[in-house]
Amino acid sequence: MDIIKFTSKKSFSIGFIGFVLVLLAALPLYAKGYTPILLTSIFMYVILSVSWTLFSGPTGYMSLATAAFFGVGIYTAAFLGKTLPLPVFIISGGLISSIVALLVGALTLRLRGIYFAIFTFGLVMLISNLLLFWELHAMETRGRFVVIVDYNTIYYTMLIIFVALMLTAYFIRRSKFGLALQSIGENEEAAAHIGINVTLVKVVNFAVSAFFIGAAGATIATRWTYVDPYIAFNPLFSFLPVLMAIFGGMGQLYGPVIGAVIFAYLQEILITRFAELYMLIFGVILVFSILYIPNGLVGLIQKWRKGGQAGEHASN
């Protein structure tokens, strides 16, 4: 009985996801102009938020390096976009971000808590200023133009990265690798003592997460057409994914997706209607959601499904 219920629920989910994917894939056929552009930017935020959660969710390491990986992807597109075909420079953007993550991770993943967060944020500043120095002194430029790509191609590229990321995140969550990640977040010392190579697990996961962030950066760069280090390494891209993930809830895979979709859409509306106020409204929503829905929208949904029977846990 239970099994039947379970499988029918599962095939319903798969059917629903398939349906949404077909709708999204066919979108440029029935919606022209603004809609694919809006959805591209929503996908971008979803990718950033899910990638951030992929690493920081289970491990509990608060990474603020998202803007660094994103910027590395953007600059990769700026450098390689004019000479290499699109898939090659997008994948390069992801790979170079991964390599940066491997190096940085190996150096810094021994830092815990606030120190790790600050170091990763420092990385954003460091790369940004190095590039700026190089632009100004070696190239005598300020920024650079990126190859222009039509918006449907950008849309499909973002969609593909999004689907690849969701599949990766889904399989990691279900794998023994995912279980190891969770155990590290719960108690790293105990994890190391039951045979988990904690450094390797963390660094590999960090690099996987950076890959998708870098690929998204390389893709969106083609829409921005002109980038400089301040645009490419905007610190907001370190913070927004965190806020979106917290708002959506990190307990489930779809949490950061919902959070990012709502936030990105809100941003789009607010920025056009209340250009000066939008950050303020953003902030207010955030404060309230952290105060009143600490487990995010996912937490709310689960509570509502269980009819409030979820037990409370006091620490002992």
Binding site: Q182, E186, N187, A190, A192, T199
Partner: peptide, 23 residues
Amino acid sequence: KPYQICRMGVSRTFQSVKVFSNL
């Protein structure tokens, strides 16, 4: 490293209990 020692067959517990609480 701890994980290497563990895989060789040395296991330990802790003075204060360490479980993976949410698993």
